[in-house]
Write a protein that binds this DNA or RNA. Sequence first.
RNA 1: GGGCUUGUAGCUCAGGUGGUUAGAGCGCUACACUGAUAAUGUAGAGGUCCGUGGUUCGAGUCCACGCAGGCCCA
Length: 1111
Amino acid sequence: MKYREYKGISYAALADDILQYWKDNKIFEKSVDSREGNPSFTFFEGPPSANGTPGIHHVMARAVKDIFCRYKTLQGFQVKRKGGWDTHGLPVELQVEKELGITKEDIGTKISVEEYNRKCREAVMKFKDQWDDLTEKMGYWVDLDNPYITFERDYMESLWYLLKQLYDKGLLYKGYTIQPYSPAAGTGLSSHELNQPGCYRDVKDTSITAQFKVVRNERSEPLFANAQGDVFFIAWTTTPWTLPANNSLAVGKNINYVAVKSFNQYTFEPITVVLAKDRVSGYFNKKAEGIALSDYKPGDKLIPFEIAGEFRGSELVGLDYEQLMPYIPLEKPAFTVLEGDFVTTEDGTGIVHLAQTFGADDYRVSVKHHVPGVFVTDEEGNQAPIVNKQGRFVQEITDFAGMPVKNYAGEDESDAEYRSTDVKIAIKLKEENRAFKVEKYEHSYPHCWRTDMPILYYPLESWFIKTTAMKDRLVELNKTINWKPKSTGEGRFGNWLENLVDWNLSRSRYWGTPLPIWRSEDKKEEKCIGSVAELKAEVEKAIAAGFEQKPIDADFDLHRPFVDDVILVSDSGQPMRRESDLIDVWFDSGAMPYAQWHYPFENQDVFKNNFPADFIAEGVDQTRGWFFTLHAIAGLLFDNVAYKNVIANGLVLDKNGNKMSKRLGNAVDPFKTLAEYGPDATRWYMISNANPWDNLKFNIEGVQEVQRRFFGTLQNTYNFFALYANLDGFTFSEEEIPMAERTESDRWIISKLNSLVVEVERAYDEYEPTRAARAIMDFTTDDLSNWYVRLNRKRFWRGEYNADKQAAYQTLYTCLLTIAKLGSPIAPFYMDHLYRDLNGVSGKEEADSVHLGQFPVADEGRIDAQLEAKMDKAQLVSSLVHSLRKKDMLKVRQPLSRILIPILNPETREQIEAVEDLILSEVNIKAIEYIDDTSGILVKKIKPNFPRLGKQYGPKMKEISKAVAQFGQEDIAEIERQGQKTIELSDGQVILTREDVDITSEDIPGWSVASENGLTVALDVTLTDELRQEGIARDLVNRIQNLRKDMGLEVQDKIKIAVERGDELVEAALEANHDYICAETQALSLELQEEVADATELEMDELKLRVKISV
RNA sequence: GGGCUUGUAGCUCAGGUGGUUAGAGCGCUACACUGAUAAUGUAGAGGUCCGUGGUUCGAGUCCACGCAGGCCCA
C-alpha cells in the first residue's frame, strides 16, 4: 500500500471529499455514540434566527464552538450538541409586515392574528437551508436533525413551567416602568423601533429654567445669609409639561454651587438663585459684571448679579423647597434635594428637575429615595400619571386640564394664536415669578415611526421578573464562571449585574410566547398556568362555570390568538382573561437548557446530566442578551450557573476595520470564501490571526497566506515524506526504533513535538484556541519543515533502507500524524485527510477518522530541554555564519575551513560541540575552533546585570552603570579572576561580584565577526586549492542534478558523466572529488575526455564546462 | 454621558512579575539555494510602542488625564 502523492491540491475539493466521507460513514454520529458511557462535556448552542442569511462572522463564532467540542471529544468526553433555532420576536414580525406591505395597525383588520402568526412561522425558517448548508460546509458539527425550535409547543410548555416557578416564588410581578410611549399610536415602543432611521429628529422646544423656592429653615439658613428677596433653586427642562409632576430636584454632590443675587427678568423682582458655579456664565451676562445691584431699574437689558455664597452639592442635599405647581399635594420626602450621579454641568443649571412618572432616571432616583411620585386616581381606582394615555393633562391639573402636552390634537402651529401647552405653562410661571428664563431650544428628540409625533417617556404597566431580589446571588455565581476574556465577565457583565434592574418581560406583540397569566376583570384574582395539562384542567372548570364551551384540543397551539380566546374561571367564580402581553424573546433563548429537553415534562435525566453547560460561546453583544438570560434563569430557579466557561467573541470587521454591512457592500460572502479557500484555511486564519474575543479584521489575503504558509508547508512536508516512503516501502510495520538509537535531530524534533503537545493541550484547556493554532503553525513551518526536514533530507533519499532511514521515516511520520491530531479541532477536514493518508497506509490506529481517535498524550520523558537548548545554539551559529558568508560574498556551496567561536563558559562549548556536525554540514564548514581566555585575543564587553543590581542599589544604578561602562579589558579581567571588584561612587564604595555583571565577547581583532544573544562567531575566509576544488565539485553536482531533472530522469536512475578537459583546476577538482560526485549524482562513471560530442555547456561562476550525461 | 475594550514596523500580531539593542509573519529590496522546486533559505531597509503628565536609578510595561477606533447601554 502506498501513500497518496499529490501534484496540485485543491483544499476546497479536499474538504468536499472529506465531507462526503463523513456523511457516508456517519463520522459525526460515531464521534458521539462511541463515547457513550464516558463523562459528558456539555455544550449549549445559542440558537440563531434563520430569518436572515448567515454571514462570515457566523463562521467565526461557530468555529470557536466547534473547536472545543471536537477537542473534548478527542479527550474522550461525550459531547452532545443539540442544534436550535430562535424563532420568535420583533425582527420576524417586521419582516413579515414588510413582505405583506402592512403595519401593526392592520393586524386584526386586514389580516387576522392567526393568519399573521402563520406567516411569521413560515418566514422564520426562510433561510434554514442556507444555514444548514453553511453549517455543513464549514464543518460545524451540531445535531441538525433534532434541533430545539422555540415556537414548538413542547418548548413553549417548558417556558410556561419556568414562568410559573418564578410566579410561585413571588418573582413575577406587574409594575410600572418608564418607557417610550406614543400617545398618538397608543402604544409603547421598543428601543429597536426608536432606533429606526428618522426617529430622532431635531426639534425646537420651549425650554424653561424654573425657580423652586427654598424653604427657609435651620438647615437652609446658610443660603439666606447675604441673600436678597426669595431664594430659589433653578432647574432647566426641555419638557415643561413635566413640571406639574415634579417631585424632587437632584444635584451632584461634588459639584460646586453658588447663590447669586439678581433680578427676575420678567417680574423684575429681586431674587437669589442657586445654580452650579460652572453655569453662572450661561445664565448671567458678563457685561453686567461690575454694575451695582442698587443701580438696577426694572426693564434694564443688563441685569446685575452678585455672588452671595458658595456651597458644595453635598451641602444642598436634603434641603426642602416649595412645590412649583401645587395641583397634587405630596407627602414628604417629596420636594427635597437629592443626590443624582447623572447630574453634570454640561448644560442647564447643574440642578435637575425630577418627575418620577416621566423619566427613567427620575423614576430610579425617586424609588431609591422613597420619594412619592405625582399620581392621580383614575376611574378604576388605580394610580395614574397626570397625563393620560392620549397625552392630555387630567382634570386635576386644573389650569391645563385636557390639553395635549404635545400637539397631538393636530392644531395649526402656524396660527398666530397658537400656544403650545409648554408655552402656556411658561406664561403661567413667568406671571408667578417662577420662571427664571424661557427660551427656544433645539435638540434631538425621538418620534414615533408610525405617527411621526413626538413620543413621551411614560409609565407603562409591565410584567417583571424580580431579578433584583437575587442580585447578590447572581453576582456571586458569576464569580465562579470562567470568562474569556476575563474583563467581559468582571467588567461588562459584572457591572451589569451590580446595577441590575428588574427584567421587563412584557412585549405588546403577536408572534411570541404568550404570558400564561389570566386575571379577573377587577384584577384581584389571577392564575399562572404552568403546563398544557393545567390549562386543560382549568378549561374544564371554565366549562363547568359556563365560560367555555368545549375542552381544548390535544394539539392546542399555545400561540396567540388561541390562548387569548380562552376564558378561565377564578376561585370566586369570576371570568378571567389572559394578560395580553407576550414575553421577551430573550426568555425563550435563556430557557433553552430546560426547554430544549421539554423539561420537566420529559427527559429529566438528560437534563440533569447536561446542566450546567461546560461551555458556551457567542458574540460579546450577547452579554446582556443570552449570556444574561441564561444566567438569570439558572440563578433564580436553580441556584446555579448555566455555564462554567464562556467565550464572548468579538466582531468580524472588514479589512479596514469597518463594520460589515450588506448595504455598504463590504460584507464577505461566507459561501464564496469557503468555496474558494476551503473551510480549513478560512477557520485557521480566523482563529490564528487574533484572539476570538478581539475584533477580527477579515482580510482575504490573510486566508491566502495561511493557506500558502501553513497548509502549503505542511502538505509539502507530507509530499516529501510520501515520495520517499513509497520508494522505500516504509509503512511503519517494523518496530519503533528506540529513541536512544535515533539521531540527535530525531530526538530533538520529537522533544519539540512533545513540548508542542503540552502547549497545545494547555491552550485548548484554557480556551485559548489562538495560542494553540499559532504553536502548531510555528512548529510545522519553523521546526519541522525549515529545520528538521531541511537538515535530514539526505537521510531520506540516500543509501539503502536501513535503521537510520527507518528512524527518519518514523520520526517524520510521528510528527505529521501528531500535527493532524492537534490541529484537527481547528482544521477538521484537512487534518482528517492528512490523518487518513498516513494511517491508511500504516494502519497503526484503528480510528477511521482523526475525530474518532484520542488526543495525543505528551510523553514528558521525551522532552529534553538540554537538547532543545543545544539546537537553539546550532540554529544561532548557522544563522551567524550565513550572515558572515553573505557579508563576504561566499556562497554556501563553497566549503570553508573553519569558524572561531569565543567561549566564556564551558556549558556553551558543550552545547555547541554536541551539534557541531549539524552546524558544519548546514553551513559547509570543515571545523569549529573554540577560543577561550588563554588565547588572549578576545575583546570582552561588560554590562551591569540591571535586574539584580537594581534591586540592591536602586538609586545608585546610574552611577554604577556609568562606572561599569568605563571598564577596560584589565578591569574585566580583574573581576573574572578575583570574582569581584570594588568601584568608587560619589558616596562610598560598591563591591561588584561576578554575578552582578554580564560579560560577553564580541570581537576578535582582525576577524570579521557576527554576534547575537551573547554568542560570537568569526569566519575564516581563506580559500585553499583544496577548498576551491571541492567548491567546484559541488557546483558541478548541482549542475548535473539540474541536467538530470531537465532530462526527466527518475530519482533512482543511474547515469554516466563525460566532461571535456579544459581547465586544470576543474580537472584536479574532478579527480579529487570523483567518488563524491558519483555518489551524489547516481553516476556509474565520471570520465574526463579530450572532446565530448553533444555536450552541454555549463556555466559555473567564471568557469565554463562542457559536460554530457547519458543513461 | 456611563461601562467595557483596542491603540507597538506599510499590514496582521507577540511582547510573565518594570531592566538599557522592542520582536515575528506578510509585504518591500537584495542575495543565495536548486532531487521538498508553482517550494526554500539568508540579509537589509522599515518604530514618536496614540498623546501629555506622574511614580522610579530605569517605563512599551505601573498610575492619572486626554485623543482616536470599537462594542454594549443610557
